[in-house]
Write a protein that binds this DNA or RNA. Structure first.
Length: 465
RNA sequence: GGCGUCGUGGCCAAGUGGUAAGGCAAGGGUCUGCAAAACCCUCAUCACGGGUUCAAAUCCCGUCGACGCCUCCA
């Protein structure tokens, strides 16, 4: 039985879908005006892992991730670059899609964009006005009336009265209540805008997601996800809008990932402590980033530093060690040992599922994968043949795949391979002659080429590292 | 100040009532010409102070501390 921690109830609940075997999951994507950073990667990875596990559990997952391509920041950046805002955002949408692909994140089922959802957004706002949940101000802005929603604040656990202390009405705003938020913002001179019943303008941030949800998944969804920095006000406001509009419970489960921490602080554009996904991938592999996430708890802050990354890298290497073949000359394992091996494999698989069922306890799932590693490596050390360990390796690889780990050994060109093989042949000959100096020279040379070698009774094996 | 999450070995981190998973690092060993990898062994009583209970890291109260949100943010 899969259990998921639900932000709105602050409890871990049994997971039940609205429709049998179908999960409708909406995850807040990014505002596209700059390179995405590893904090975005964390969120994308968390929901990729959740999606993959749900699919492994037999669900069909409709995974929607939006792109906010209409926004103040985009407009400002476009102005700076003297580029059309929609072209700019389109450029970064394609860029982000590439980043995600290079992280082995499965593409969402659909990626709606604000600029392409405009008619529904306007219709949505009109509906809210009709129902008395929103009002058009004199300046062309439209606001959501928070006092019209009795439950306002229930996701973030805030009461309207508590929130008013810090609330301010900015100059130029025409709100009835300080906490009212913009559904539609009237356009300033020369800005990109769309026609609406309230004049030229563009939608506020929150209404987009409500509208795209409705467009892609309907009135009710199973899982709504995003970073926990979005709980208030973004998700709170989404709930207010959607439930006021449809009169139905919007999302059954609210799932929020913790923030990536760089030097004890959240990594964010506004703090300027950013490492882009591209920069990261120029130094470490996608598996390492994913392992960093898997090794932690998706809801907790994730420490991103050399120590945690080095450990993640070692973890990945260790997992890979289980996939290596046995020596061709291996003499084989007795039947009873094979039975024990199969039993270990089954137990590890159960542990994996139990961990993941428990609110996606990926750290526990990784521990289960290490059970495989130990069992496979021990079997190999004890003389199992490649054939004998293969079934367990297949199970192991399948589960690693559920977490999105590729565990690929680095590949070289055929030319390189030949060169390496030639050097190894020479070294083997030198070793036969006990010419240790020459042998070690070659080993150093190979190391410089990025090749690690291992000698054993059955010969020398090597790999790119 | 308000709301929320949390504080487990040198580091990362599972575990939410019955005497502490896993990984990294460290030390010892097997293997090796030496290495490397793998394997074996060693390594914590759970921030602090009270309380509930036959029994608590796990529940309750308090203290201290960290982080997030309260303004754009994954």
């Amino acid at each position: 039985m899969l259990k998921i921690y639900n932000t709105i109830s602050r409890k871990t609940e049994e997971f039940q879908t609205l429709e049998p075997n179908l999960v409708k999951m909406y995850v807040c994507g990014v505002t596209v005006y700059n390179d995405a950073h590893v904090g975005h990667a964390m969120s994308a990875l968390v929901f990729d892992i959740i999606r993959r596990y749900l699919e492994y559990r037999g669900y069909t997952v409709k995974h929607v991730m939006n792109y906010t391509d209409v926004d103040d920041k985009i407009i400002n950046r476009a102005k700076q670059l003297k580029e059309d805002p929609l072209k700019l955002s389109q450029r970064y949408i394609e860029d982000y899609a590439k980043d995600l692909a290079s992280l082995n994140v499965l593409p969402a089922t659909s990626n709606p964009q604000v600029s392409k959802t405009m008619p529904l957004i306007i219709k949505f706002i009109e509906g809210l006005i009709e129902k008395g949940h929103a009002y058009a101000a004199s300046n062309g802005d439209v606001y959501f009336r928070v006092t019209s929603d009795e439950d306002y604040g229930r996701l973030s656990g805030r009461k309207l009265d508590d929130m008013q202390a810090g609330a301010r009405i900015e100059v130029g705003e025409a709100k009835d209540h300080p906490m009212d938020f913009a559904l539609w913002k009237s356009a300033k001179e020369g800005e990109i805008s769309w026609d609406s019943p309230w004049g030229k303008g563009r939608p506020g941030w929150h209404i987009e997601c409500s509208a795209m949800n409705l467009a892609e998944l309907g009135e009710q969804i199973d899982i709504h996800g995003g970073g926990n920095d979005l709980i208030f006000p973004h998700h709170e406001n989404e709930i207010a809008q959607s439930e006021s509009y449809t009169g139905k419970e919007f999302s059954r489960y609210w799932v929020h990932n913790g923030m990536l921490q760089l030097g004890g602080e959240k990594m964010s554009k506004s703090l300027g402590n950013i490492i882009s996904i591209k920069e990261f991938l120029s130094k470490r592999s996608a598996d390492v980033m994913r392992m960093l996430v898997l090794n932690g708890t998706y809801r907790a802050p994730l420490l991103f530093n050399d120590d945690t990354l080095d450990a993640a890298e070692k973890n990945v290497e260790r997992l890979k060690s289980a996939l290596r073949p046995a020596a061709p000359s291996a003499k084989g394992l007795a039947a009873e040992s094979l039975t024990a091996l199969a039993a270990t494999s089954d137990a590890a698989k159960v542990n994996f599922t139990e961990a993941m069922d428990s609110d996606f306890n990926t750290a526990g799932a990784i521990a289960a994968l290490f059970e495989f590693v130990k069992a496979i490596n021990t079997a190999r050390d004890n003389g199992a043949t490649s054939e004998q360990i293969k079934p367990m390796q297949d199970s192991f690889r399948e589960l690693a795949g559920v977490l999105g780990l590729k565990l690929e050994e680095k590949q070289g060109s055929g030319e390189q391979d030949e060169q390496v093989n030639a050097l190894i042949a020479e070294r083997t000959e030198a070793r036969k002659q006990k010419q240790w100096k020459r042998s070690d020279e070659i080993r150093d040379q190979l190391k410089e080429m990025g090749v690690t070698i291992e000698d054993s009774k059955d010969g020398t094996i090597w790999r790119y590292s």
